[in-house]
Design a binder for these strands. Structure first.
Lengths: 210, 210
DNA sequence: TCGATTTAGTACCCAGTGGATACTAAAGTC
DNA sequence: GACTTTAGTATCCACTGGGTACTAAATCGA
């Protein structure tokens, strides 16, 4: 499942299903080949078939094999989530399209399950992997980054706190470029910082438990 | 992969490999059967073959299919992590044994990869699923619970903060039982509370990013 | 030209949290 | 009965999250 930020929502790339299918759209998918090497290799190959470039981030979302139907009639599917930087594929052409994850086209049942699991996996991985950064180009404004986090978390964030935490973790460094986008004050562009402060010890979080 | 807390470490259940295998031990594993229904059904069946009861918690850790060798010569393995409450299987018998996850017996390469991914997955899920509670019996002391969290996180926690956060989230409720274990003051037994306070909004955590 | 509007970015305040130290409480050990 | 061990609490402090309010720099429109 390839995702990108689109218009304050998370969008999923669907491709047109072949003639005769029940559903009109499907997730991009494919069967492993010997030349793929690993499962991730297969996922990269499938993704490159639908994109002008390789996803900026890719991770497995799980295996799915309950009785639910899959368009290829395969027994077992291994789902992946891939992050596509905003604007990478703005005109997907005739045979593909981005759909907001909340208003997807009808999908085969197993693909629907993959989308749910992958979207949930994205949120869980937010804290442990630079997913949000991979959904943006190398240089971005802090408002861009905050918007991505808001899309992924599903609610608004506080601007000052967001920046304080960001700078506190030394995760971004300013470039000397500025971007003026329509009206409003131009924003400074930042890039992800390579310097690493040693990660803080994980603490316990009881508030997220069901 | 079945895990349980054992002596301040996380332990993994291994079973003796059949005669003629390269390694002497393997993870419990099995091939899906039609009667299993789902992948999780298969995992439950496999777990029950090695345990006196069903694991208290079970979740998929991912699919593994790179070239690495697996004892059953299967193309693809789907790994699961299962939590076994402490003391459930204290004497596994001749053909099985608990090993600390840090000092495992030699395993087939793919199983080694499954153990690594599953252990990492456990830590990630700690915040979102009641894993720690499922590694304990229904009634437990707060020191027990803290010890499990320390085992899973890999470092000591602060007692007062741990309890403040725990009570703040209303996650446990006291029973009227006390447990006296050797010396020291007896500890009150608690159980997981069913009442739910609405979960707080997820905030951003930059400090865990690589 | 001069507001009004929009977006970027900062300053300040306050409540709540994480974590350290230090304490009391209740059991067993010698 | 003093000492040790484990349970559990109190107090203090630094820092964080998040609210309000402010300044800065751009466009739009009358």
């Amino acid at each position: 499942m390839l995702v990108t930020p689109l218009d304050r929502h998370l969008a999923v790339l669907l491709v047109r299903a072949p003639e005769g299918s029940i559903e009109r759209w499907t997730l991009p998918w494919g069967v492993p080949q010997a030349s793929d090497g690993t499962l991730e290799g297969t996922a990269v190959r499938v993704a490159r078939g639908a994109l002008p470039s390789t996803p900026a981030w890719l991770e497995q979302a799980g295996a799915f094999a309950d009785g639910r139907r899959h368009p290829g009639e395969v027994d077992l599917s291994v789902g992946f989530v891939g992050a596509v930087p905003v604007g990478t594929l703005s005109s997907p052409g005739e045979d593909a399209a981005w759909f907001p994850v909340s208003e997807l086209q009808p999908l085969a049942p197993r693909q629907r399950a993959i989308v749910s699991a992958a979207a949930e996996g994205l949120r869980v991985r937010l804290d442990y992997a630079p997913v949000a950064f991979r959904l943006l180009p190398p240089a971005f404004t802090l408002s861009d980054l905050q918007r991505v986090y808001e899309i992924l978390l599903g609610h608004r964030l506080h601007k000052a706190s967001f920046r304080r935490a960001l700078h506190g973790a030394a995760l971004v460094e300013p470039t000397d470029e500025w971007r003026s986008e329509g009206r409003g004050r131009p924003a400074q562009l930042f890039r992800q910082a390579v310097k690493r402060r040693r990660p803080r010890r994980r603490t316990v979080r009881f508030d997220l438990l069901p």
